[in-house]
Write a protein that binds this DNA or RNA. Structure first.
Lengths: 359, 359
DNA sequence: CGGGTGTACTGTATCGGTTAAGTTCTTGAT
DNA sequence: ATCAAGAACTTAACCGATACAGTACACCCG
């Protein structure tokens, strides 16, 4: 790969070669109007001759204070993020804005089992951060805030004086539950992705729900609960399952346990489309028809939701918009108090939900 | 967002406060064994009190020469990358390795219509680069190479003395074509993503094919061509279409034009699964059955390929492995000559291909 | 012909750390 | 008592640029 230990060509090397000051050489690269075109050309030529490839970005940042990149802090690892369609949508929104402005996006490592990830946040050479869907007790948050740089949070958690873009998860949860209740369902199961950043998996206790650190999960379920209880379905009649990860497999497992009970639910409320897909899969393997035998509703409306058989009824939230809006908020800053945008959610009725059968 | 213009707390501030040298303060953070635990604790306490959030990463990099992040250079913009399932697979492989080692990944902007993207490459504060599926004449390549840092190329282009991980596209193309030919197809159409980084769209001339700068595209089609010609199908009998972007829409448009001809092809060879999905869609809208009326074969074997109806026959290449291998190669370096890994391709026969009908 | 205005450069301080090479002071061995 | 070795810090140089405040000289004006 060639040796990267050349005697180090710097501005000074070129300045010496041409008997000019290094400031002038610097200007040749950054402020061409400050010198005669001839001299600039001569400097550029010499730079090329000596194998100089432009001012060192690190040194430049140190002096000028500008990094030209922003950090992206994610739940779970980057490799997971890439596989999560909802996260992809958000990332796409962010990326649009960053592309538009020619800025780099530094994705930070996120394995919380490593204490070093907190340090990586401290060590990142960036101008600010986007925090996406973190638990409110994520250890990286204090590190980010300590840096006193612009920060925007997407979806979770809400932090005082920090810009925020999220969706109205509570209302979305209500819409999903209202739809299901209106179809006559009373025996329902709730499928959730993690409510806390531990590795728990199992039924969700009231306490666990109320103390949940992952806010969208908590709010969506609160929405379900409020509507269910208002319709005479007590919380202890509702089956619940928290998957250890937001994936089809997690959903399939949880839904499977519900389907295998004597009194199986006639409807599944999943707090993400991914989980809902898993529930559909679990139904399929058990010979249950969707929606005749069981109705399934998701949350997010990721693109694939329209393509499943049957197409998934779900609650849409504008993920890409959220990403783009958050990015713009971060880059443009704000004047007085930190803005907080709550995007609307919409019930998208497709074919995976239907009336409850009397059976 | 709080004002980020505090009077700037630096090592010196703390050093002054405690009447010690700034080196000692620096050591308190980086080499705790160089000072007494009491002093370290005192320093850390003072740091916290003054709102100091650890050594500035930029200044540290400048002196120590380590950036802790690597640049990722992509075709098209980041927002596109995120939507391309094949790119996602590659990214996932890369991300696994980066997560494992707690390194950051700086995604650089990629709108080639902006001259500034070349500068961004020069200005990125990174220790090396991964280049993914670029055209051989991409203007950013010289900038990357000029930096004299570790570089690894994934898929394209091949560059002398630069680490390389790719797939055997030519053999893969051959396998696809052999499968189609064995099924009796002689009237075939070829669907391609861009062969050059212009915005051309249309039939592919021999010249355009042979000078193609996007190597995987060229090699796959070369593979098709060799097998077709060996089986008596002259190149000028083959329908071709180059889409302006690797997407379902692009494929649908190209395939649509082929299907609408009097002598429509009985098989479509698509150089990506995305294009193949488009072809399936185009067939569906025209009432053509797959595979009875038209066989369709893709390339890549992205996860969704197994889930379409009918499931897509395709040529698998280990995308995630390629990403992971490339990342490891970059980070671990090499001794003598630059390694070059060519991963194998496998024909995966599913249900989208079938025997040619005599009709 | 002095003074104001620009243009093209130069010199030096500085950004915020890390590194290498001392300096002190203790301690233990001879 | 002497000296080598180590622990705990300090000093000064340096990393590679940019910011800012000049300086020198040409030019235009009344």
């Amino acid at each position: 790969m060639g040796d990267h230990k050349k005697p180090a060509v710097t501005l000074q090397t070129i300045a010496d070669e041409l008997q000019v000051s290094k400031t002038t050489v610097s200007n040749a690269f950054n402020k061409p109007d400050q010198l005669t075109p001839e001299l600039q050309e001569k400097i550029l030529a010499t730079a090329k001759k000596l194998g100089y490839c432009g001012p060192d970005p690190v040194a430049r940042s140190l002096r000028s204070g500008v990094r030209g990149a922003y950090g992206l802090v994610l739940t779970e690892s980057l490799s997971y993020m890439v596989t999560d369609p909802a996260a992809q949508q958000i990332l796409q929104g962010i990326a649009e804005v960053f592309d538009e402005r020619d800025l780099g996006l530094l994705t930070l490592p996120a394995r919380l089992d490593r204490s070093s990830v907190v340090n990586r946040v401290r060590e990142a050479a960036v101008d600010g951060f986007i925090l996406n869907s973190l638990a409110s007790d994520d250890p990286r948050i204090p590190s980010v805030l300590a840096r006193n740089q612009p920060v925007v949070v997407l979806h979770s958690p809400r932090i005082p004086d920090v810009g925020y873009v999220g969706a109205d998860d509570f209302a979305g949860g209500r819409k999903a539950a209202e739809h299901i209740v209106a179809l006559g369902h009373r025996k329902v199961g709730i499928l959730a992705f993690p409510l806390h950043e531990d590795d728990f998996s199992g039924p969700i206790s009231i306490d666990r729900l109320e103390t949940a650190t992952v806010e969208p999960a908590r709010e969506r379920i609160r929405g379900y609960r409020e509507v269910l209880e208002a319709n005479g379905v007590a919380w202890n009649q509702v089956l619940t399952w928290e998957a250890p990860i937001n994936s089809g497999e997690g959903g399939a497992l949880g839904a499977g346990r519900m389907f295998d009970r004597a009194e199986r639910p006639t409807a599944i409320l999943a707090i993400s489309d991914q989980l809902a897909f898993g529930a559909m899969e679990a139904a399929r393997t058990r010979g249950l028809r969707v929606p005749q035998d069981v109705s399934i509703i998701g949350f997010d409306d990721i693109p694939y939701a329209a393509k499943t058989t049957p197409p998934l009824t779900t609650v849409r939230q504008p993920l890409r918009t959220a990403g783009a809006l958050g990015a713009r908020m971060l880059l443009d800053g704000w004047d007085d108090e930190a803005p907080s945008v709550i995007l609307p959610t919409d019930l998208i009725v497709r074919a995976s939900t239907g009336p409850a059968t009397q059976a």
